[in-house]
Structure formats: structure tokens, C-alpha cells
Nucleic acid binder design. Structure first.
Lengths: 200, 200, 200, 200
DNA sequence: TATGAATGAGGGTTCATTCAT
DNA sequence: CATGAATGAACCCTCATTCAT
């Protein structure tokens, strides 16, 4: 990679990082491209060399940050040596929820305007080389644990949406229960869902 | 109520209705106050006599429209003569989902930026006299059917968030499954959740 | 007319006059809306209360200024007591050319991007009450002088385009001849054209 | 000519051709230098090695394309074996008008901002070796046909401006008449003009 | 020669909000 | 109460031009 290419990559990352900071602190709507370039220390036109608009950079960030988060959770799970399928799912849920409760800006950012469609795209079409392909990882988890799931995609969909929506409310507003109070409910319900999709 | 008060009430309702039409057709972000007052046929300044800003009017509308929707669902359920608790919940879910799939503008409107907190406030603090207090209705449903729910609020929370989030994705993007395909999954999972909270 | 309406009319005229000054001195392309409002001493948004964009104000100005010019020419012709049809046309041509040679900014402005279509619209759909309807005036000139023209619109079209295009070149660049040298040529050719369309 | 020179010439021609395509399809104002270099497949900076700016390239193109068009018309006229002076002029007019009506982009391009001065320069100072020197050709036409024209340059000027301006309006807007309807008018008037300048 | 990333002033346009009437 | 003209900051985006490579 030449010097110019390196510089380009660097500038792109600066823009991504700066945008992320602003999106998570001020929110997407309140962040203008002027804000981004000013903070990043580049000219306005430079932004448009790298991204189409604010929503382009947002989508790339959602993909990247979600992937990062799941990768962390997965690594932690492996380190913990958990093998039973349900336990693995529950571990990942708890890990992700704990991380998000530590970083509410990130939560607000990846949750707002986040649909399953965007999410799936993010997790199955990694943006940078290191990014996780969660689709494959999920399939591996199923295969390794020897379980048989009748409708794996729908099951994952139900779990992610349930966890995401309730987790968001608990973390952001502690309403109707705090995250710590939510967790046991969630665990039980998630295990119940998995049970229904398991084919013995 | 005097003539002036009547006029005032009328103007307020015109603004609410007009805003609703615009929010559901163009979306909140793309609707300006100019759009609203022009369509409503009042002066710009008049808007500010009744509402603080666009978000003020939106919150009032979410409360009102959600309440309306649940009231319809509840009425339909009663007419259908359904008595078993689980059946009632499932009926309401299906009714609401069907209505929302017929009116995607409404779905986008009441779902975007919708948190449990806003939602609960909407359903428990009726805006106009006729609005439903869903909190009471829910309690009645439990009492009437003679079931015993260990944690009724959390259970409702889990169900509403699950149904809302998955329904949104299915209706708006048919991803990962269409609404019709989602429904049986949802019904089974919801019945499973209720079973877990039932105390015999 | 109320005070507010008067003020509105005044502001519109300020914008029109300011735009005209800038268009005729700097040209249309080099004149920005910022320039206009700054010189006019109004806020940027105000411009958009009165005009759609730069081209809207230009079209209105072309109509207005062309009308004004022809009205002057026509008045002068009447004062001069000229009655013969050909003499009248020649008089108007010379008058208009002389005026334009005194005001090259105006010439550049009403000629650039000026098509017969725009011109006809300008002269037949007067913008303000005082503006001339040249279509009627032309017809009157024909009727009054008792001549019979076989194809009056096409004849006028040919004459206007010929005079406009050659006049523009002569006045602006004195190329291939100066305006004073052009005039006798033009007069002779125009008389020739009229002769061809006259039905005895 | 060395290899480098050849390459240079090639690049210049690529830029000219690309610009012409863009100018005639999108118009001058809407064509940016970015558009040109992107389509031409060269770097931005390269453009400035060959041309001062957009207007530089435009002027060169007007000269070249006008010359080309007249050369075609002249060749066709010779092939048709027309010898009478008036017939030759009329033939060329009709040929050029027909070509321009087939290619409105070209018409808009060579007509907008086109003055007699630019035009004359284009036709009398050929840009590339093959380009026509219309000044000479015109003189030849007069000499060959044995006519005697009192003021040949002014006469040509009047004809070209008349034909150009009316042709533009007819072709672009069919206003006030279509090109086909315009032609007989134009032919008669042009023959009338020539008659006036002929010295027997 | 040729490149193309970077610039940043400047463009047009929108819009929530105010306030004199 | 109601009006709506006026504001002007803020927005996004373009683009001719430069210059280090």
C-alpha cells in the first residue's frame, strides 16, 4: 500500500471515528456534516470524496460497530468455554446488553432507525476485513452444539427483536424494569423460545 | 363551552388531523410546520398558540392514535365474544398487526421514536375523554378471565416489544418473513410467554 | 391597499430593481441570490417569498423591461405623428435600437437566453397593470393603417429576429458594421420584407 | 511527430470529443470539468494542461463544429450540381437547418452565446488543418457565379443572423411556426435580400 | 507529463420562530 | 386571538483549481 493510499485510509477512518463520536453524543439528526468535518479537521468537500451523505456513513458505522460488538461477545463466550447452545445464546445476549448499558450512546445509535434488514445486512456483509460474518457464526454455533433448529432464521429474528426492544427500554429508561431486573425474564423467555424451535 | 372555546377546540383539532395526515404520508422529518399550517388553512403564528413544536404535536398524536387503535381492537374482540385470556391477547395482536399492515404510514409514525415509556404514557394517560385507558382494560381482562399473572406489567412489556419490533420489520420489509408467515410464530411464542407467567 | 400590502409591493420592487441592476452589470450567471438580497438589504429567505428562483425573477424582468421599451417607442412614434405602416415599423426599430445602444446592459440582459417564445409571452401577457400588450398594439397598427398583411405573425417574427440578432452584434461588437452603418441596410431589408407580405 | 506528441494530440482530441458530447447533451452550464475528465478517462489536473477552462474548450469546439457543418453543406451543394448563386445560398441554408433540427443539442450548443464575432472567427480562422475557411469559400461562390454583390459581408451577416435566429426558435420551440413552415418564408425573404444587394 | 486527493468558498434552499399589525 | 411577512442561521452539496507525488 502506497503512502497516498495509507493517507486516504487514515482520513476515512478519521471521518468514521469523528462521525461516530458525534452521532453517539449529539444524535444523528443534530449532527451536521459541517460538525463532522470541523471536528475531523478536513475540508467540507473531502467528506463527499468518501461518503455519499450522512446516512451512508451511518450505515457503514452501524455495520462496523454491530459487528465489533458481536465479535467481542463471541470471543468472550469462547473464552468462557460455554458449549450448550441455549447457554451460548443467553451469554451473548447478556454480554451485549451489559456492553450497551455501559455505552448508551452506542445503543441509541445502533438502535434508532435500525431494522432487521439493516442489521442483517450489517452482520452478513462485513464492511472491513476484520468484521464478523454473524450469519456464518450463528450457523456454526448451531452445528457445533448438535442441536436441530426448525426455523433458525425466524427464531433468531424473534430473539433479537425481543431482546433489542426490551433491552433498549430498560437500559435507556429503566422502564418498566431495570436491565438487571429484565435479564432473568429475558433469559427464561428466550429459553422458552428456543425450546419451541428445537427438533429433538 | 363558549363559542370562542369551541372555535379554539376546532382549530386545534384541524391542526392535529392535518399533522397526522402529513406525518403518516410524508414522515415526521419531511413535514414542516409550513406544510401543516398551509394544509390546515391557518396562519403560521397560530400553530404556536396551540403547540410548542412539531414534537409536541407528534407526542399528542401518538397517544391519541395508539389509544384509538387499541380501543378498536378491544371492541372487535368483545364483539367476537372471545373469553379465554390467551385468545384475547392473540386476537388483539392480530387485529392490531392487520390494521397496521393496512396503514404503513400509521405504523411508521407510531413506531419510530416510540419507546415503551411514551407508549405506556399514551395508553395510561388518555389525552381526550374518549381515549382508552389501556392499563385499566388490561387489568380487567386479567380479572375477568380469572387467571393469575405473576408479573403482569413485565409480561405485557415483553409481548408488546416483541410484537411491535417483529411486526414492524415484517410489515415494512417482509424481512425475514411476511406478516402472514410471522403470525403463527408470534402466536406460539406469545402463548409460551403467557404460560410462563401464569400462576395456577 | 393596506399598509402591509404597500410594504410588500415595495419590497418586491426593490428586489426587481436590484436584480435588474446586477443582471445588467454583472450578468445573470455571475449574479447570485446572495448578491441580490445583500444589495437589496433584505434577508435571504425574503427572496423566496417573492420569487421561485433567479430565473423566475429574470423572466419577470424581461417581460417588464421589454414592454417598457416598446411602450416608449410606441409613444414616441405617436408623438412624431407617423402614420404609414412601414414608416411606423422602421421608426420603432430605430428607436429601440438607439435605446439599446445607450444601455448595453439592458441589451445583453433581454437578448441573452431570449427566445421568441419568451418574448411573445412577455409582450402579450403583461406583468403589471401598466405593461403594454404588444400583440394588440401591433394589430391596431395594421388595422389603422389600412394595410393587409398576409401572415402578420410570421412577418413580425422574421423582422424581430433579424433586427434583434443583427442589432445585438452591431451594438455590442460593431461587427461587421456599427449600428449607424447597419441601420440603412436594415431599413431597406425590412421594407422589402413588408412588401412581400403586403396584400394589395 | 514523436510518440509523445501523438499521445498528447490524442488526449486533447479525447477531451474535445468528450466535452462536445456532454455540452450537446447536458448543456454547457450543467457540464462540469469533473464530468468531462471522468468521461474522458483522464485525471482532473490533465485538463488544465490542455485548456484554460470550460469556456476555452467551448470556443474551440464552436469553431470546429460550425466549420464541419458548413463544409458538409458545401460538399452536398457541389454534389447536387447547383450553380445559380441564390439557389446555392438557399440550398446551404436548408441543409444546415435540417442538420440542426436533427441535432438540437448541437444547435443549442453553437447558438447559445454565439455572436457574429465568434462565428466569423470560427469560419475564417480554421482551428485544425481540415477546417473550412468559409470566408474564402463564400468569395469563391460569388466569383464563380458571376454575380456582383454590393456589400457581400453585410449581406451575409443579415442572412446568417436572420436564418440563425428564426431557425433556432422554429427548431427548438416550433414557435411561431415549425421549421417546415418557416422554410418557404425564409427562402423568399432571403432571395429578396440578395436581390437588393445584387448589382447587375 | 500526468495524477487525483484535497481544498473551501460559494452556491441554492429551507424553516422554526418572531412580532408588528 | 390570529395573522403572515420577515428573518437569518443553518443546511447540504458542487466545483474550479491547486499541488505534492
Amino acid at each position: 500500500m502506497g503512502k497516498a493510499d495509507l493517507n486516504k485510509k487514515l482520513k476515512m477512518e478519521t471521518l468514521l471515528n469523528t462521525s461516530f463520536e458525534l452521532f453517539t453524543s449529539k444524535g444523528l439528526n443534530k449532527t451536521s456534516i459541517s460538525d463532522i468535518v470541523e471536528k475531523a479537521g478536513v475540508a467540507k468537500g473531502t467528506f463527499y470524496l468518501y461518503f455519499k451523505d450522512k446516512y451512508d456513513i451511518r450505515n457503514k458505522l452501524i455495520a462496523h460497530k454491530s459487528s465489533q460488538l458481536f465479535m467481542q461477545a463471541y470471543d468472550a463466550m469462547e473464552k468462557a468455554g460455554i458449549v450448550v447452545f441455549e447457554d451460548r445464546i443467553v451469554f451473548i445476549i447478556n454480554y451485549v446488553l451489559d456492553e450497551l448499558s455501559k455505552n448508551k450512546g452506542l445503543l441509541a445509535f445502533i438502535y434508532k432507525d435500525l431494522s432487521w434488514a439493516v442489521f442483517k445486512r450489517a452482520l452478513t456483509n462485513p464492511m472491513s476485513e476484520g468484521d464478523l460474518n454473524f450469519g456464518e457464526v450463528y450457523q456454526n454455533m448451531i452445528d457445533e452444539s448438535g442441536v436441530n433448529i426448525s426455523d433458525p432464521e425466524v427464531m433468531l429474528f424473534l430473539i433479537i427483536e425481543l431482546v433489542g426492544a426490551t433491552g433498549y427500554s430498560s437500559i435507556m429508561y429503566s422502564d418498566p424494569v431495570s436491565l438487571q431486573d429484565l435479564k432473568p425474564h429475558l433469559e427464561e423467555v428466550v429459553r422458552g423460545i428456543i425450546a419451541r424451535y428445537k427438533v429433538q
